[in-house]
Amino acid sequence: MGELFYHGLGFVLILIGLYGVLTLKNVFRLILALGIMETGVNIILVATGWHPGAKVPIIDTTVQGAGFAAYADPLPSALVLTAIVIGLGTTALALVLALLYKESHGTDELGGETEEEVVE
């Protein structure tokens, strides 16, 4: 399987997640859809640094010049680690807000709010 497969896979996951974000009403399902989008973009990022037959990027002094081409690029993996941590934080915060929503509205479905209230 070439790298195009992984790019395509990631893109399909992003679109599935986006469809969920735009159509779902349940707060917990919305958070799941966000998670699917994040996974999709992480796959794309990892595939950016990889090519078929790439070696693990642990490089010693014997590697010179064109020899680097045989290894995967480690930088996108580092970016993905950061993105995963940010995704974890966002998901945790989203779950807290979803709980707050459910407690204050008595339902976990969005939409249909017409009440007037005053916020200072």
Partner: peptide
């Protein structure tokens, strides 16, 4: 910490 706040924050986050 009221209904509107929770709703606004959640929509913005998503």
């Amino acid at each position: 910490r009221n209904r509107a706040g929770a709703r606004g924050a959640f929509k913005y986050l998503v």
